[in-house]
Design a protein around this nucleic acid. Structure first.
Length: 581
DNA sequence: GCCGTTTTCGGCCCGACTGTTTTCAGTCG
């Protein structure tokens, strides 16, 4: 019997995670057990952040090896991957005739209230909710009042203003300013950022701050009346939340000095990391909360002044905040084999930057000066190649003239070397600019995809593979092409890209530009541990100040468990050159 | 719905703040 093979729908990790989250929300609205609800959200979280593709895991028959995925979820995920649909979800949607997930996304509004708004006022969308509040209908419901209406409106505004998260590099200065202000107060002993900001995640939802003080009331008073405050969301004795004028929320928690370590550990997260270490604590007869580590039997407090103390009582080394995602760092910390992460100070050069010869701002000498000021030993000038006309791509003749200028400068420089290169464009067939003979004269070549982002996955992957197989291509720049908040990554078969990169000795770039950070942390881990790839951490600077973005690339590299040995530009010039093709 | 070095049943991290309520549910992180 001839069976026509249907094309499988393209559901990736994110899509599957969203479906599971939606099921969780629907179950929540239906009043199901919170543990059942949590099971779906937990599985979604793990699938969203795992480096392997869910389809690959499914095809290997290993779905149940994913933490939080058991027999039921494995079956449902299988159905989703095979058919793109899930009868169970349709059934739930019939029970909750309209999906109320939109309402649940409003900060301060959960499943219970959303359900009542729908049942009693027939509200299912944010627009309908706004109208009902304008007519003061919500406050008439028992258990809800004028304050509830006000808070919901505020939540809606915040949602609209933020529509998601902001970049790490936007959040850092705001938080650093507030921390500085807190530390200046005589009643504040210590103050630090916590949360995803301390873990240096590429985007931040809200800013978590922590401080220690003997006078929490004065801290709360100071924090909620700072000039940056747009409005106060909550003000308690030890915890307050504000929204600053840009719409970003900041939470500050105050603890006593002897509790500071436990609190810093607790509020740094991640959630998954904390749940895991609490589990370990429990098995040791201990209990951890933001005030310290306690013995369960006697309630005696055994630690809490420093983070190190907390981890020590769990029999662990202290993992750096950047690692605390429950991606193996806990096991590594227990076995005293945490990685020696790459540091900013390990970086000896930057291999991608542009000058005013193409679309950069500064002159060649100015880029060199800025790089020398950072203590670098070398840089590669990688202006855009010929075919990228929009970015002022250089003809062979123009590039040759730049190379002559580089030769002249190199003769004058001591202990610093400018490398000749270019950022080549990978065309639709996987070819790059310039004749091979010219490419062979360059010190470092970087190639990247600058167009055809919407092509089918197969074609994009083929282009990339062909470029990596080119003996003159050393580095692939920003391998997924994503721009945070602006452009989704293009469809590309990353496991295959990683495999071919390792086989051909092609270096993968981690682009440090704050809205790229491409490759992202999960991909770095996968490329490193599953395929043995090597990386270059570059800034893609378009002006001299951009060279400082290296800091964000390093943070992402650390989150991806990269060590000095994995990164070509953490090596001296001659060694680095040997690591290229 | 998941999970197991006390368990295949009976737990599941746990505490703070708000609002509207007279003792607590809802929400959040």
């Amino acid at each position: 019997m001839a069976k026509r093979r249907e094309e499988k729908p393209k559901m990736g990790n994110e899509e599957i995670a969203r479906v599971l989250d939606e099921i969780g929300d629907l179950l929540d609205i239906l009043g199901e057990s919170t543990f059942r609800v949590q099971a779906y959200h937990k599985a979604a979280m793990n699938i969203r952040s795992m480096p392997r593709s869910i389809r690959e895991v499914y095809e290997a028959g290993e779905l149940q090896t994913i933490p939080g995925v058991g027999a039921h979820l494995a079956e449902r995920i299988g159905i989703l991957l095979e058919t793109g649909k899930l009868p169970y979800l349709e059934e739930l949607k019939r029970k909750v005739p309209v999906s109320l997930t939109e309402l649940i996304s409003i900060p301060g509004l959960g499943a219970k209230k959303a359900k009542r708004l729908y049942d009693e006022l027939n509200i299912a969308t944010i627009d309908e909710l706004k109208k009902a509040i304008a007519q003061h209908k919500v406050r008439e419901l028992p258990g809800m009042g004028a304050k509830t209406e006000e808070n919901i409106l505020r939540g809606i505004r915040q949602l609209e203003q933020m529509h998601g998260r902001i970049l790490l590099f936007e959040a850092l200065p705001i938080s650093e300013e507030v921390i500085k202000g807190l530390r200046r107060q005589e009643f504040v002993e210590r103050a630090d950022t916590a949360g995803s900001l301390r873990r240096m995640k590429e985007t931040i939802g809200d800013i978590d701050l922590l401080c220690s003080s003997r006078e929490p009331n004065r801290v709360m008073e100071y924090f909620t009346t700072m000039p940056q405050v747009a409005y106060v969301v909550a003000r308690g004795e030890t915890k307050s939340s504000i929204v600053v004028t840009t719409g970003l929320q900041m939470d500050l928690r105050v603890v006593a000095p002897e509790q500071y370590g436990a609190a810093l550990q607790y509020f740094t997260g991640s959630k998954a990391h904390n749940i895991h270490i609490r589990d370990i604590a429990k098995k040791r007869g201990l209990k951890i909360n933001e005030y310290g580590v306690f013995r369960v039997d006697t309630d005696e407090r055994v630690a809490g002044a420093t983070e190190e103390e907390v981890y020590e009582h769990l029999g662990m080394d202290t993992p750096r905040p950047v690692l605390r995602e429950d991606r193996g760092e806990i096991e590594a910390a227990m076995e005293h084999r945490l990685p020696r992460l790459i540091e900013l100070s390990d970086i000896r050069g930057d291999l991608q930057m542009h000058t005013n010869a193409s679309d950069g701002v500064n002159k060649l000498e100015e880029m060199v000066e800025a790089a020398m000021a950072l203590g670098y030993e070398y840089i590669c000038i990688s202006d855009h190649a010929e075919r990228l006309k929009v970015a002022g791509g250089l003809s062979e003749k123009e590039l040759r003239s730049q190379f002559e200028e580089i030769d002249r400068l190199n003769e004058k420089l001591k202990g610093f070397r400018i490398l000749k290169g270019a950022e080549l464009n990978i065309d639709n067939e996987g070819r790059v600019d310039y004749p091979d003979s010219f490419l062979a004269e360059m010190d470092v070549t970087i190639a990247s995809i600058h167009g055809g982002f919407n092509q089918p996955k197969e074609q994009l992957t083929r282009r990339m593979i062909r470029a990596m197989e080119n003996e003159h291509v050393d580095i692939i720049a920003h391998p997924t092409g994503r721009i945070l908040g602006k452009r989704e990554p293009y469809e590309i078969d990353l496991p295959t890209v990683f495999k071919v990169a390792a086989e051909t000795g092609t270096i993968l770039e981690l682009n440090s530009f704050p809205d790229r950070l491409d490759l992202k942390d999960e991909y770095l881990m996968d490329a490193k541990f599953s395929y043995g790839c090597k990386f270059a951490i570059n800034t893609d600077a378009h002006n001299a100040n951009h060279l400082r973005y290296m800091r964000y690339g390093i943070a992402t590299a650390q989150r991806g468990w990269l060590e000095k040995g994995d990164v070509v530009n953490a090596h001296p010039l001659d060694v680095m050159i040997d690591m290229l093709k």
